[in-house]
């Protein structure tokens, strides 16, 4: 067992973990963050995407021991209990989800992209959006609704100038 301290969604916690434990499992079981979904557990589906020091990473390809001293953010940190982030709201209004299993991964993978486009005040081409989400698999929507949600989130934020995160 290895002692580590992680800052997860703003709260620090020290715990002892086996080196072989995946960050995804530690977040789910030791931190109770069930929004971290595990689809394939080998880096193919994107469901388990979290932010480590602000950068999206697959938590199934990351060992918790590697995250000593790092700040981790999961979907639970986004938009409050009512999921009020512009991207979450756009997923809802544009039918960007059905079963919802992949949604936390999409949201965490796409937030930096949406923020970058918003700060550049630029509406990306659909190809760029599809490239940005190409590491995430959705078996329900056929992706059109997700592309529409990204466009709406960027459009709304450029128009409104606020990021309700």
């Amino acid at each position: 067992m290895t002692d580590i301290t992680l800052e997860v969604n703003g709260t620090e916690k020290s715990l002892a973990v086996e080196p072989r434990r995946l960050l995804a499992d530690v977040l789910r079981h030791e931190f109770g963050l069930s929004g971290v979904h595990i689809g394939c557990a080998h880096g193919a589906c994107g469901c388990c995407t979290v932010h480590i020091d602000g950068v999206p990473k697959l938590s199934c390809l990351t060992f918790a021991v590697q995250c000593e001293g790092k700040a981790i953010a999961t979907v639970e940190s986004v938009g409050g209990p009512n999921a009020e982030h512009a991207l979450q709201q756009a997923f809802k209004s544009e039918h960007g989800l059905q079963c919802g299993y992949c949604t936390p991964g999409f949201v965490m993978a796409l937030i930096p992209f949406v923020e970058a486009m918003t700060s550049q005040r630029r509406m990306p081409e659909d190809d760029e959006i599809r490239e940005a989400m190409s590491g995430n698999i959705c078996r329900c929507t056929g992706y059109h609704g997700i592309v529409a949600a990204v466009r709406k989130a960027i459009g709304d934020q450029i128009a409104g100038g606020s990021n309700r995160s």
């Binding site: 995946l22 557990a41 080998h42 880096g43 193919a44 697959l58 199934c60 390809l61 990351t62 060992f63 590697q66």
Partner: peptide, 14 residues
């Protein structure tokens, strides 16, 4: 050695 782990960790998980 492990760097990004994007190839090694899938192999380890499997």
């Amino acid at each position: 050695p492990i760097a990004g782990g994007q190839s090694l960790v899938p192999m380890m998980n499997l």
